[in-house]
Nucleic acid binder design. Structure first.
Lengths: 209, 209
DNA sequence: GTCTATATGAAGATAGAC
DNA sequence: GTCTATCTTCATATAGAC
């Protein structure tokens, strides 16, 4: 006996302001104190509510962890794909990888609490949480591998190292910049330009000895 | 009224086997679960003793943390300095930096629990523990800066990026290899050669576009 | 939707026997 | 040097009022 006649009932509000606030504060606290050391009381305090109220929005601390981890990859992945797909079809491998690097850095630095939390705590969380998060990580790695394979086939990428190892090295190096990047020491544009130059052409000048 | 006549009394045993075992197991657990999530009961279990016995060797969990952190830097720093100082005076900047990179990677991968624990948890520990550990980190960074400044003055290092930024990028990239290096996929020598080539000359071939 | 109050478990650290 | 037993504190999660 539904008395409602609306065709478009309001969807379950999965991203109310309070819910988003909890996720953001949780990411910030996970980043700076770790997952286990962060208490739901702290998350609640930072979010302007009481601890018990968190359970209206989330089933458990574990569920909050999962959403924080996933978002840490999603924001970066979305920025990368958007930039790469905006390029013309005739773009060179250098241009495509430069777009990916810019997107990765931009996504990381604009959602630093989610990405840094992800990077810092991924190695420390329970195996079950890791397993649930693994797929989304794998997909992002695959996207990079496809970019690198393409660059290799065009003869632009160095061929003495596997693309998997290049991906691990480059993403690892990029990821760590979120730990030390200081926006007060220069513009984001300059930062991207310098990081990209080092990744592409290295730290030394001249020919290999 | 000392009745001992020995000139060389046994020193306080600061590195008994049990004490070293506790440090090693603590490093391993800090690495994989984080500092807060690791309980002294787990450390004791892994060390083959009971939780209360830890307090015979250490004053607190905090003291164990401090020693684990310091050792994570010391083992790497010692390996780097040893290799650089073994070079002849006429070594090029490339040779000196290559020795530093090899030492850094060797130290990291041969003491992985200490270095990975350091890298993973440094951003998450209480401020007091960070402050106590800061000096030893600063000294290692200074050593790298001196190597890079030397390379810059000889005109071998790229000049469009500050040595501080190059250091942060390179050490960050090297540090993260401990998270993914797989000794079953090739020899350590080959690994070092490939990483060094990327750091020196980049991931792309040919001239910058 | 948010609150207060609380059940239940486990942490770091200490005391004192052996 | 290591043990057992315990003090004290604080965590996640739940129940039910508002």
């Amino acid at each position: 006996m539904a008395t409602k006649s609306r065709e478009n009932p309001a969807p379950v509000e999965v991203d109310s302001a309070t819910r988003e606030r909890i996720l953001l504060e949780a990411a910030r606290l996970f980043r700076h104190h770790g997952y286990a050391a962060t208490t739901l009381r702290e998350v609640a305090d930072a979010s302007g509510i009481k601890a018990g109220s968190i359970y209206y929005h989330f089933e458990s601390k574990d569920q909050i962890l999962g959403e924080v981890l996933d978002k840490g990859i999603q924001v970066v992945s979305a920025a990368v794909q958007q930039r790469v797909e905006a390029l013309p079809a005739e773009a060179t491998a250098r241009q495509r990888l430069a777009a990916a690097i810019e997107g990765h850095l931009w996504g990381m630095l604009h959602h630093g609490d989610f990405t840094s939390a992800n990077i810092r705590i991924y190695g420390q969380i329970p195996a079950a949480a890791k397993n649930r998060h693994r797929k989304i990580r794998r997909e992002y790695a695959d996207y990079w591998d496809s970019l690198l394979e393409d660059a290799l086939q065009r003869g632009e990428l160095r061929a003495d190292t596997s693309t998997a190892m290049i991906r691990l090295f480059v993403i690892g190096a990029l990821n760590w910049t979120v730990e030390w990047y200081n926006p007060q020491k220069g513009s984001f544009q300059d930062f991207v330009k310098q990081i990209t130059a080092i990744v592409f052409d290295g730290t030394f000048v001249g020919e290999p000895a």
